[in-house]
Design a binder for these strands. Structure first.
Lengths: 141, 141
DNA sequence: GCCAAATGTAACTGTTATGATTACATTTAC
DNA sequence: GTAAATGTAATCATAACAGTTACATTTGGC
């Protein structure tokens, strides 16, 4: 699993948590514990998808645009890491005579495509607001 | 996803396909399109799990032991690649003050553990015999 | 007993992927 | 005009991965 998915989710939860709903790449980087360049690359994806607005220049940064109750982890996964469940390595070779060696590639691909769909449905169960609520609940204990 | 999973599945399907149910690491490697050393490492796992027997020396190799109708891809996954769905990278830091940065690690871990369980259930739907049947069906068309 | 064939396993190499860092052009608020 | 922020390319270090070589060990057949 790509770490960009984690960065995107963390960023959105953090923006939803801030009253201003705005943070610079530097602030995000220090909260996520990575470097600002990675943040900017990931936030670019979220901008293209319309999840955040960008304000350049002094006092600028990234502003949460979407409704955190409607942004699912599945949609973020599809933006940042789609297909990462499927390994690129394949055994066998379609041109071989053996029915096992020639067909296992497509059989496994089919199985993994099903797993990928199921994985996305699993992630679709969670929204950014769900995660934030859970963290605020835990805080009270 | 670890390629050892693919190697293990391919090996077992191939052994189930052979009338003798036996093959050397060299034969398996040529059918799977990898090298014998990797085969032997993976087959060692299957031996420990009781899925294959090993015969050393001249004319030896690996012999399918379990019933291909009862060996699920899930059980193979648990042997070879358990936990590979979860990324090791974690954003944030449990020691930080921010409720997001300090808690996102465990929240994401929980979500991925659920996904891992679901993934295993998905793989448990398929047996080695299922895959072999499908390949023999396709062959006829 | 000897030899050939096979597994078990460690070590090394090359390639790729990943994340961090640096640098700099561009944009924008004041 | 300057400072602050993003956009993006380039580079570096590290780790992961697969392939390869080598060799000890085991075993079957003569």
């Amino acid at each position: 699993m790509n770490s960009e998915f984690h960065i995107a989710v963390h960023s959105l939860v953090f923006l939803a948590y801030l009253p201003s709903r705005m943070a610079s790449s530097e602030l995000l980087a220090s909260n996520i514990c990575t470097n600002p360049v990675r943040i900017r690359k990931v936030m670019n994806l979220l901008k293209t998808a319309g999840l955040v607005d960008v304000q350049k220049g002094t006092g600028g940064g990234y502003i949460l645009r979407g409704n955190p109750r409607q942004i699912t982890l599945g949609s973020i996964y599809r933006l940042t890491s789609a297909g990462s469940l499927v390994s690129d390595w394949r055994s066998g070779d379609p041109t071989m005579d053996c029915i096992v060696a020639s067909q296992i590639g497509q059989v496994m691909s089919h199985i993994f495509e099903g797993a990928e769909e199921q994985f996305e449905r699993h992630l679709d169960q969670y929204t950014i607001q769900d995660l934030l609520n859970q963290m605020q609940m835990n805080k009270r204990n």
